[in-house]
Every structure is written in structure tokens, then in C-alpha cells.
């Protein structure tokens, strides 16, 4: 396994109330595997992903759990040691390609500084690696692009540059936080295909955080669904998406326009995600669940559903 996360819990203490944002999340990613972490905003998916790189704000506290990258425990590391890993062993790409690159530095500078921060190479070699990184993400005329400033590139090109910067040191793990959400569907598909191909070819593990199940469907090998700070369903992408076990996953799928029967009304999910300060007792989806029963007040654990799947529900929609 490239990454193994065990019993990770995060909270955000406040003057009045403490938000229990992430609760006992465990998962692992194998080399070359593409995993989609899916959930609504506020589900804790972004906090979970950023915690892996130690990039959360200081206000976000880790309560417990362990994060191991290639066998090395990250939660014990100092900021200094973590910094040596970021951009080298694991990389992060963010949502907004307009704001992610520094407007006053050239693409070339921002790519080669990433190399120079981690590798003992000269400027010439860093430059050369920048060119091949741009080539790898399918940017035409890479030598020319090195001299360009971010505002001279389109949104899609900028996100390719950001991904090139993330992959330039050949990390073992790539974390993407809504990295294609701001792009249109065609560009999104191109970039997803690119990352998937790169991941499979170089053995890079990919954790793709998104609110969009459709992204997960065409792209990921495996899906992790988060709700209210907990993992509620995990499993191979094709099986989870074809036959969701958790009512929440099913509701999300029903709300995707392209999957709905033509002419039928889109299903919408009534209600609000739970308030996590503190979280409600029992199953956190209970309030919005169409099949909730009295037993749900006890709160199900995440349990195995066959060999490859897990679900947090007393009454899963499929049985192993």
C-alpha cells in the first residue's frame, strides 16, 4: 500500500462549540490505484485529504489515528520533515486554476523551483524536467510555455501546469481537491484521463476529492463516500455506482441528470447535512433517509459487504 489511513479523526475547537469534522476514517490506496473521495461540502472530505499532507489550517486538530505513506508514519513528523515530503513523495492540486499559480512568476520558475526544493540538481536540469513535465500533461510547445505568465494561459492550461508541478518530482501519491470542478466537461474529461493514465503508468496512487459522483464513475478504480464526517460506503467504482448499498449513495446517484430516465423528474434529497458540533447520535443520515427505522437511532458501524465493499447501514440496498 502507498497510503494507509487508520482511525483518523479531526476536530475544530471553537470558543462556543467544537466541530467534530472527521470521525474515525480508515482507508488505504495501492500503487497505481485511483480512488475517488466523494461527498457534499461539509462532509469532511477536503479536511481528510488535506490532513494527509499536513496542509489544514492550524485550527484543525487531529484527535487520533495514523497516516502512513510508504510505511512512514506522517503524524509524528515535524513541519520541516513534512515539507520535505510535500511536492516530492506526495503532491496536492487545488480547485481554482486561476488562483493556484502565482501571477507574477513564470510557469518555468514555478515548475523548476518545485524541483530545486527537493532534488539536488542544477537549474539547467530543473528546466529540462519542467519541459518534460509540461510535455507529460499534454501542453503544446512546452519551451515557449515556460516563459509564459499564468494569465497568458487558459484555465485548462493552467490546471495542466498545476498538475505538471504536482507530478514533476514523481510523487507516490497525488491528492487532488476538486481539481477539475472549475473546468468545463470536455476539459475535465481530458485531465481526468491524463491523470488516470499517468497514475497507472507510473504507479502513482491518486486520491481524487470531488462532490461529483459522475467524475468518480468514469475515472476512479475505487470510491469512498463520506457523509457527516464518516465514511459510509466504500468499494470498487463500477459496483458501488451500479448497485449502491447505502441509501445516501443511491440518493446521490439519482440526482445525477445524465443517469435519470429521460423525461422523468430529477430526484432531490430533502433536508440538510447534519450539524457536527456535536454530531447527532445514531446514524447521521437518519433524518433524511427514506428507509430509516427505529433501529437506526443506535448508529451502524462500517462493516464489510462481501470481500471488497463496506457500508455503514443496518439495511443496505444490496446484500453480499
Amino acid at each position: 500500500m502507498v497510503l494507509a489511513v487508520d482511525h483518523l479523526s479531526l476536530r475544530i475547537p471553537g470558543a462556543q462549540r467544537t466541530v467534530y469534522a472527521v470521525d474515525d476514517v480508515s482507508f488505504a490506496i495501492a500503487p497505481g490505484e485511483v480512488v475517488a473521495l466523494v461527498g457534499e461540502s461539509g462532509s469532511g472530505k477536503t479536511l481528510t485529504a488535506l490532513a494527509l499532507a499536513g496542509l489544514n489550517e492550524a485550527a484543525v486538530q487531529r484527535v487520533g489515528g495514523s497516516i502512513r505513506l510508504q510505511g512512514e508514519e506522517l503524524t509524528d513528523l515535524s513541519e520541516r520533515a513534512l515539507r520535505r515530503l510535500r511536492g516530492a513523495a506526495l503532491s496536492v492540486v487545488f480547485q481554482d486554476p486561476m488562483a493556484t499559480l502565482n501571477p507574477v512568476l513564470t510557469v518555468g520558475t514555478q515548475l523548476s523551483e518545485t524541483v530545486l526544493a527537493h532534488r539536488r540538481v542544477g537549474r539547467q536540469e530543473a528546466r529540462r524536467r519542467a519541459v518534460s513535465a509540461l510535455q507529460a500533461v499534454g501542453l503544446p510547445e512546452p519551451e515557449l510555455r515556460l516563459r509564459a505568465y499564468p494569465h497568458q494561459l487558459s484555465g485548462g492550461m493552467r490546471q495542466r501546469v498545476a498538475i505538471a508541478a504536482a507530478l514533476i518530482n514523481e510523487p507516490a501519491l497525488l491528492i487532488a481537491d476538486e481539481a477539475t470542478t472549475a473546468l468545463d466537461a470536455t476539459l475535465q474529461a481530458q485531465i481526468l484521463a491524463l491523470v488516470r493514465a499517468h497514475g497507472h503508468a507510473h504507479g502513482t496512487a491518486v486520491l481524487w476529492v470531488t462532490h461529483d459522483l459522475a467524475v468518480a464513475a468514469g475515472f476512479a478504480d475505487r470510491v469512498l463516500v463520506m457523509y457527516g464526517g464518516q465514511l459510509i460506503e466504500t468499494g470498487p467504482a463500477d459496483r458501488v455506482l451500479r448497485q449502491p448499498a447505502h441509501p445516501y449513495t443511491a440518493a446521490l446517484l439519482a440526482a445525477i441528470p445524465s443517469r435519470a430516465e429521460p423525461g422523468s423528474e430529477l430526484a432531490t434529497l430533502p433536508g440538510q447535512p447534519p450539524d457536527l458540533a456535536p454530531p447527532p447520535p445514531g446514524c447521521r443520515f437518519r433524518e433524511r433517509c427514506p428507509i430509516a427505522r427505529a433501529e437506526c437511532a443506535a448508529g451502524p458501524a462500517l462493516h464489510a459487504l462481501g470481500a471488497e465493499r463496506q457500508v455503514r447501514c443496518f439495511f443496505p440496498l444490496v446484500t453480499s
Binding site: N102, T114, A165
Partner: peptide, 8 residues
């Protein structure tokens, strides 16, 4: 944030 994420 991205600069931090790249380990600068």
C-alpha cells in the same frame, strides 16, 4: 497554499 503544498 499551492507553494506550501509543493514543499517550498
Amino acid at each position: 497554499r499551492f507553494a506550501r503544498a509543493r514543499g517550498l
